[in-house]
Amino acid sequence: MRQALLALLAKEPAHGYELKQALETIFGIAYPSPNIGQIYVTLGRLEKDGYVRAVDVEQANRPNKKVYYITAAGREALETWVDEPTEGPRVRDEFFMKLVLAPLTGLADRMALVNRQRRHYLSLMRDLAELAELAERTDPANRAALLLIEGAMLHLQADLDWLERCQEELQ
């Protein structure tokens, strides 16, 4: 959330609600409606770190609104984030920890763990397929959302292929 808000503010100053709307437009159906409270909490932290500042803007007949803008330090932090390579999603796999450790405890056997996980991944896949269909139907112009869903599906496929490898090797 931090970097997303910094990136939006690097484009132009905005108040909290505008940031929420921008996130919704950009990520579409692929992102659960961002929580406005969470946005304000994050903005507060960014302000404390010196990455953003806020100014009060007077509005006719309404309470002042706080408009946030990015500082030089914030821009630098954003650049660092953009420039550094992004961590792979599966470097520390929790399921693998279970698979390796659970048999030691006598709590579960590996075959059962793999089978349960496979069914779980397949149900997630079904959910993503339905989400993709919904996105195609209701918001086909949002290619970013569709690509994010497709990316999630490809990751899930890789996870399933890997489960198969685990089952072959550990049987």
Binding site: I29, A30, Y31, V41, T42, S123, L128
Partner: peptide
């Protein structure tokens, strides 16, 4: 079946950590 998402509701593909 995973929990049904509310019709027109949003997904959870992107995770924006705070």
């Amino acid at each position: 079946r995973v929990r049904r998402r509310p019709p027109g509701g949003a997904g959870d593909v992107v995770e924006l950590r705070s």
